[in-house]
Design a protein around this nucleic acid. Structure first.
Lengths: 394, 394
DNA sequence: GATTAGTTTGTTCAAACAACCAACTCACAA
DNA sequence: TTGTGAGTTGGTTGTTTGAACAAACTAATC
């Protein structure tokens, strides 16, 4: 109610943002095309564009092709490639993933830093080092625009509220980096940023209103896009589907959670126990599976069925247009995916939601974070923005 | 993007609607108060109000009290009580519930019509009769404004897609009543309208962004309010939590659904089977429970634990600000509610969502439908409207 | 000449503003 | 007790403002 547009000034601001969003989403684009897309008069678009150019957000790329029946060539407009950049991090179990992105989401650099076994206070200097390296090489006008962190755990009010494998030791990332770099700093759950990635970086998903991105790593969580918006819930815990318990009339003993049965960790541990092995990794599971090991095949069969069940439950809970699976185990064993589909089809004979695997899950989380923090930097949290994610050199 | 306000005309229309919404939500209210609430100049509000008055939506009620430091008395404005009315129906298993409501949601009449065992084509004439009775007594300007139906089943695109106990025999309610009465006709799932009721008719819930209203009747479903909006999902099947299956590593045999274990029907059938009785009703269960019957106590104990589990899972899935329970069985056995809370507290030791019972679930579904169809009649689907639900006589 | 892209200049109209009137409270004096 | 005037609030009227618009222009192409 109070956020609605009510006077000409607010209307003007919104129209400026609409033009910026058009440039963002369809660059390179001409003024006349923006005018047509937004149903705004071309002189109005020209005026609004002038404002944006004065603020440095946009630039002219040169002339496009004229129409084949004659007429002046359009001037192609785009987001200013030298406006600034964001730095995006993903706290993985083994690696800290680091990505530098341009304002429009192009990948400027990506690298992994080994952090296995390190404590959070040992990781902070590594992050600072990455930020300084990026800053040293930079030649943009405004430099660093924002920092995002993908968290394998829950986040509320920009604070980590639950972190299963990295002890945060009361370190306040948001506070530390806003103090030191004077830019927006954003923490977000890894499944949530993956979902944002699917919404913003994938042109095919452009018209979809509701998406569920299920992450199966050491735990299980879902990122929810509802009405094109990330749904975090009241405490940032929406989509914590791994904590669900079975409702089957049997309440003897403590109820066990979904992720106790079919997270990647649970599967590896199960195989490990049955084979009386230790320190097994995902690669060992792949090797055993390819060798035709029966215990592994049985365990992965259960995994397949459980994932199908999780998808079925998610479809009943959220009724999305599409479900994404974000699982390193499935990335290395893609032959399991058709069997998940098959089993899911058996469970849901009528309406079935399409299932897709997210490729390169680390890129997805970094780019999702990039989208969120870029929006914050631009003050365009709720606009529809399509990012490009081309690997570009400025 | 295309629905955003971009020009003065759209701005003007929106501001008119904002003023109408203010009158709706705070009636009786003065112009100056609207002006303050909306941060619009008082002369602007006066002009916008004039438009609304010309269209008959609003009326002046008389003068209010002057402030205690002096000054002119305000003129109190309200929604025109004689503008029109809506008719709202709930297809229960035993009864057809009928409610006539004023534009601002006041209850003009309510009655139940016995329909147990009747087929849909025998119910239609009863509905027509109700519509005609209301029309005959009516003395409003526009008369019937819209019709809503609460459906115990799923609805997509205003069509019943699944109806567990009433065979729809391909009757198209929306088509039939729009043709015959030339007003908006709206079908909506019963859990969804209950959720809308909690959002729009309960002042305490005014500031809540996310709510889950769990209906436990013959099946189990949840109505979801997410970011103050009803979330229906891609096919109107969001919140069909009763269909969820257990993920516990055991995939022998066909997976059983939540509602096979703890819907009201399931509980009654279980007691019935164990007691080798037949045709048991809810009242029989209450009687047995009060008599201290062990089988009933055990069954209801499982019910309590299962409902706690369902709430726990809903909290993990949606992370709402509040959960409402909508269950006739709990309405007649309110002593079970504290035990649900207790068991839920055991499952979720840290963040716990508040739980409330919806009183008079039939009123809730009818009023929820009233809200939805009234919004449609006013073309204000997305506005924040608070309805009053006072039993009024015009 | 026909067509398209973009600019300039002047118009439009809903919201904001300023000045006003209407109607009230309160304090204080007669 | 009554009357009066200062101060306050609600609402209206007439004017100004400014962002979007429209039309007429220039520019550049087929």
């Amino acid at each position: 109610m109070s956020s609605a547009i009510r006077n000409r000034m607010q209307l003007h601001q919104q129209n400026i943002q609409s033009v910026l969003a058009e440039v963002f989403n369809h660059q390179p684009i001409s003024r006349i095309e923006i005018s047509r897309n937004l149903a705004l008069n071309k002189s109005t678009v020209s005026a609004l564009y002038r404002d944006l150019k004065e603020q440095g957000y946009v630039e002219e790329l040169g002339e496009g092709d004229a129409s084949n029946v004659g007429g002046r060539k359009p001037v192609l407009l785009a987001i200013n490639r030298r406006y600034g950049y964001t730095m995006n991090f993903d706290f993985g179990y083994r690696h800290l993933h680091v990505m530098q992105n341009s304002l429009s989401g192009d990948v400027l650099s990506y690298r992994q830093v080994d952090v296995k076994g390190l404590k959070i206070k040992q990781i902070l200097p590594l992050i600072d080092h990455e930020l300084e390296t990026a800053s040293a090489k930079d030649n943009t006008i405004h430099g660093l625009l924002g920092i995002s962190f993908a968290i394998h755990g829950t986040v509320d009010q920009n604070q980590v509220t639950y972190s299963p494998f990295l002890d945060m030791e009361h370190v306040d990332l948001a506070d530390y980096y806003t103090q030191n770099y004077q830019v927006p700093v954003l923490l977000e759950n890894e499944a949530n940023v993956s979902a944002v990635y699917e919404r913003d970086f994938n042109k095919e998903n452009d018209h979809l209103e509701n998406m569920v991105s299920i992450s199966i790593h050491r735990g299980i969580g879902a990122g929810l896009i509802i009405d094109q918006k990330l749904h975090r819930g009241a405490h940032g815990e929406a989509g914590e589907i791994g904590r669900s318990v079975s409702i089957d009339g049997n309440w003897d003993g403590a109820p066990r959670k979904v992720e106790d049965y079919c997270s990647e960790d649970a599967i590896i541990n199960q195989i490990q126990d049955e084979k009386q092995a230790s320190n097994m990794t995902r690669d060992d599971v792949v090797r055993l599976f390819n060798e035709g090991d029966e215990i592994t095949k049985t365990a992965l069969d259960t995994f397949v069925k459980s994932v199908a069940g999780i998808i079925y439950n998610a479809a009943n809970n959220y009724d999305p247009d599409i479900v994404f699976l974000n699982s390193p185990l499935l990335e290395v064993l893609p032959e399991l995916e058709p069997r998940i589909e098959e089993f899911y089809a058996q469970m849901a004979p009528s309406i079935r939601v399409p299932i897709k695997l997210t490729q390169n899950s680390h890129h997805a989380t970094l780019l999702g974070g990039c989208s969120l923090v870029t929006r914050e930097a631009l003050g365009m949290e709720d606009a529809k923005l399509n990012f490009s994610a081309q690997t570009a050199t400025i």
